[in-house]
Write a protein that binds this DNA or RNA. Structure first.
Lengths: 171, 171
DNA sequence: ATTTTAAGTCAGCCTTGTTGACTTTCCAAG
DNA sequence: CTTGGAAAGTCAACAAGGCTGACTTAAAAT
């Protein structure tokens, strides 16, 4: 393969790098427009339920890590506890999330999805997975690896901790 | 369910992709965490100026397409005119953006960055480009192509129109 | 002359973020 | 056993930035 994919005009022989400001600007806009697409489908579903993205995020990560504590969720989501609490209160009241006092430490609340919560989670994530599946299929396996590699590099280091604690073990 | 847990694509990067629900969930979280990183640096700068992401977006696209009209900006950003107008009013008042009545059509306002506006734009986009440059460098050229390919597929079709109207011309 | 379009404005509402102050619970260290 | 502090929750106030709806002005299009 060429080491210069179809990306750069490179008229000035000076730069071996394919990272012109224009290339970077395209990457920036790609993030902007793609993120909009990425959230569009769940947003529509949430609206029917009177929820917002904040509810989606909470539900997603409770589903991913059942029994997680509020504090843990706080550090993943990066919002204040007051902000999270407002969201959490509504989903608990609405019977989507179960908040159980900790056994070892009774100050902690452990969060679990109820059946209704799990049902909404499936609905939301199926919509989101569907779009991602289509994008992955259309772009191909190599592109998917590249996509993940770049995004991983773009995260703040502290966030990488939360990005799939399980993940591919070593590496 | 997935009959093929994380085995590499053995069919020559063609047919069956390894798109388990878990792979897709990783892609979803990658988007979430990366987008946070992506906006973190500009957000910090904007805060010093008392602006938000909405101002950044307006400034970005005015810089990309000087002389663009309010209506055009509206369709790129996908917000209501009232929402955009509030943002636009402040940046015009603050002398970052110049709003000129159209020559051909006097109903239209054409938007341009002033020197001060261009200075802020450079500051913001340099921060964002810097992070993207680092991510691109670390991930490598092939990854960058894949990143862009996947994001492009993830956009809503109408948004693809706005994504680099200039772009690689005849394909 | 009438209708449509582009832009702007006013008013009000919602979600989701923020601070700050304060309480309750309860583990753990002195 | 007392007390310091962490975890969680609550109340209040505020701001950004979305939204809708109603309305005006000016100019272009029909």
């Amino acid at each position: 393969m060429s080491d210069r994919p179809n990306l750069a005009p490179l008229s000035r022989g000076e730069s071996l790098l394919f990272l012109t400001d224009d290339q970077l600007r395209r990457g920036i806009e790609a993030m902007f427009f793609a993120y909009r697409g990425f959230t569009a489908d769940p947003d529509r579903i949430l609206q029917e339920y009177g929820y917002g993205r904040a509810h989606h995020r909470a539900i997603h990560f409770i589903n991913r890590s059942p029994g997680t504590t509020v504090n843990n969720l706080l550090s993943i989501l990066g919002v204040t506890k007051q902000s999270l609490n407002r969201v959490l209160r509504t989903v608990v009241e609405d019977g989507l999330v179960d908040s159980r006092v900790g056994d070892r430490d009774k100050r902690e609340r452990h969060l679990y999805l109820t059946e209704a919560g799990a049902a909404l989670e499936r609905k939301l994530s199926e919509a989101q997975r569907s779009r991602m599946r289509d994008a992955f299929r259309a772009a191909g396996p190599d592109a998917v690896a590249g996509f993940r590699a770049v995004l991983e590099q773009m995260m703040d280091p502290e966030m990488k901790r939360h990005y799939l604690d399980d993940a591919d073990g070593g590496k």
